[in-house]
Amino acid sequence: MMDFDIPRIPLGDWIEGGLDFLTSEFSGVTRAISRTTQTGISLLNDGLMWMPIWALMALVILLCWRLSGRRLAIGALLGLGLIWNLGLWNPMIQTLTLVVLATLVAIVIALPLGILAAVSDRFYRVIMPILDFMQTMPAFVYLIPAIPFFGIGSVSGIFATVIFSMPPAIRFTTLGIRQVPKELVEAADAFGSTRSQKLVKVQLPLSLPTVMGGINQTIMLALSMVVIAAMIGANGLGSEVWRAIQRLRPGEGFEAGIAVVIMAMLLDRLTQTLSGRKKKP
């Protein structure tokens, strides 16, 4: 055996160095982000907790009924009733808070990026490989850089969740806009529309169902990530599972798991009916 002594490439050291540099250089920024996010979490969480359980439940059931129909409303009643009965209402609200916030932030970032990738071929070529990379990366790897920036806790959880759940919203926005029939874009051009008029009056409205499909996926990914983020101290159903694992209580773990599944199904159906909804003539 020949033993070439090829030095190991210190990839990990470089990444660490980069992270150190970023955390020290931008500590002001990260602290500001951290504070704002923390405030957002508290406000939303407190708001949802302040509502009587029956009122919130009734609200969700009503929403399901109006947007989808009786079946989903009954499903919501049974599902939410079970969660409440298992004593998982508060962790569920914490998880919901994180999902809602992370999704909002993800959408706010993803929409402009998606639009940009739709109108600029060059940006499209840059961002698509990045998205591929982001989506093939194992989910919990995102937890690692979150900690040096934001420490252990829910803020880190949101940070990792935003990054993890953003790609579909970007992709679907780009896809939706690019799928708008060429003739319609041409018609808009022929009448002398500016770029932004074309976007606002033709391309975005017509890509809305696709964009909503992307947002649906983003919500689903956010939910799964928020559960994983319990590993770095994000509160909610995830931490219930985590605790059950550590205490070797599989039954409790499954109960929390079932609560996550119920949430996923309700969120999925609700956003799906939103995206599938046709303009009523």
């Binding site: 029939p181 003739e183 319609l184 041409e186 018609a187 808009a188 022929a190 009448f191 002398g192 529309s193 500016t194 008029q197 009056k201 033709v202 409205p205 017509l206 303009k279």
Partner: peptide, 27 residues
């Protein structure tokens, strides 16, 4: 210039009235 297309190229998310208004609206 205003233009009429072979495949109509009407905006499906707009009513007939809103389609007819399009050119004026963007102006």
């Amino acid at each position: 210039f205003s233009m009429v297309f072979q495949n109509f190229a009407l905006f499906p998310h707009r009513t007939v009235q809103m389609n007819a208004e399009y050119g004026l609206e963007i102006r």
